[in-house]
Amino acid sequence: MRRLARCAAEAYARAITAGACLALVLATLHIFADAVATKLFLSPINGTHQIVTFYYMVALFFLPLGYAESQGAHISADLGFSLLSRRLQRIATTANHLLLTGYVGLLCWYATVKAIQQTEVGAYETIAGGQIPLWPSRWIAVMGLLAMLAIAALKALDSILGAESDTETPA
């Protein structure tokens, strides 16, 4: 059951990471095209600033959070950890995973609260020749935090139940 949940969580994290990669490519090309169009043809692409800021950037920072967590890519230091006994190390690791779950859970919760509020008011920004809706971008943040929450929660569960998580890389 735990394995199934883990597979599902990782599949979800990987899928939205593909979205982040796409956002990265699009951001590069969009900014490039806008600068060239502005310089050569004096016609910037309307809304570049907003689309890059509120969509590509939000996607490429939030969506891979879970993938990075499952890869053990989030940074930690080892200043006193190795001095602890094995038992204390286990306790510290479990505490780490539990606190991470709580913290990311809180971030995810408040991101959702904000996303609902922004959706209700239909948040947007005015640009030359129209408006760009901002509220959908709030849900991108929620999607990314949700992936990290799922991965962190499963890791916490693993360390409570005693199974050393296999993807954990020591610092």
């Binding site: 989030h74 230091a77 950890f81 510290a92």
Partner: peptide, 14 residues
């Protein structure tokens, strides 16, 4: 927390 190998972003944020 940083010394005990907590994620650094977690130590600061929590």
């Amino acid at each position: 927390m940083i010394a005990l190998r907590f994620h650094i972003g977690l130590a600061m944020g929590a």
